[in-house]
Design a protein around this nucleic acid. Structure first.
Length: 229
DNA sequence: AACGAGTGCAACCGCAGGGCG
DNA sequence: CCGCCCTGCGGTTGCACTCGT
């Protein structure tokens, strides 16, 4: 993909780095006067020596009055984790379901969150490797069954399975048989195979609490949810 | 007080995709 | 259909700040 000619022109003699208060004021004034959009016109209209991308980013991630500041609440983190399990690194989509949060916020938070989580896992791993009698099980290198089931689900275009259906399915197979949706109950998607092994140790209470954490799907079907996305 | 490591987040960069002539 | 332009997204970087030694 070639860069547009405007990008090349913009890159010369333009300011970079941190925004000053004065620049912020100019940008705010411009947005208030002309509204959001037409970013290629914003630097000229505002009298800013910044590229259009920089202006857009500054507005969307910082100056926009709808942005919520401060730490993420437990609910927000919870929802973020679930959405990430469903959508992957689609930060803008995830941010779209977290009112007042920007994709940059979500992405930054997630990277921090994942970093601390990985370190925790490393520590856990270290402790586990200290066991003198450990037996190392070979890990399957192919797709796990749940992922294959998910593919079938997507291919079949039957997205009508609601939380109720999931619970019914759980009731039928809670004894350890893998169901594709179970992988969505994890807090990350780092390694499904490891999770599947981990799942075998869940008791019914743990499994039910994971299922019930899907309350945000209570009133909608999967097709509703996917359609919204 | 000084310094280095760690952390959080603003900002940049490259690219993909859609609209339009 | 093709090429150009614009917009927006996601990965990455860099810097300021905090904290521990």
């Amino acid at each position: 993909m070639q860069h547009s000619s405007s990008d090349v022109v913009e890159s010369s003699s333009l300011r970079k780095g941190a925004w000053t208060k004065f620049e912020d004021e100019l940008l705010k004034d411009c947005i208030q006067r002309y509204g959001v959009g037409k970013w290629h016109l914003v630097p000229q209209r505002a009298g800013l020596k910044r590229c259009r991308k920089s202006c857009r980013m500054r507005w969307l991630n910082y100056l926009n009055p709808n942005i919520k500041r401060g730490e993420f609440s437990e609910d927000e983190v919870d929802l973020m984790v679930k959405l990430h399990n469903l959508l992957g690194n689609r930060w803008s989509l995830i941010a779209g379901r977290l009112p007042g949060r920007t994709s940059n916020d979500v992405k930054n938070y997630w990277n921090t969150y994942m970093r601390s989580k990985k370190e925790k896992n490393k520590m856990k791993e270290k402790i586990e490797t200290m066991k003198p009698h450990e037996v190392i099980k070979p890990q399957p290198r192919t797709f796990s069954k749940p992922m294959l089931e998910l593919n079938k689900f997507i291919a079949s275009n039957d997205h009508s399975c609601s939380k109720v259906n999931m619970n019914e399915e759980l009731g039928a197979t809670s004894s350890g048989t893998c169901n594709w949706w179970k992988t969505l109950l994890f807090d990350d998607n780092e390694d499904h195979n490891n999770h599947l092994c981990e799942m075998d140790f869940w008791d019914d209470q743990e499994l039910n609490s994971r299922i019930n954490s899907f309350d945000f799907l209570e009133s909608q079907t999967w097709s509703d949810f996917l359609a919204q996305i």
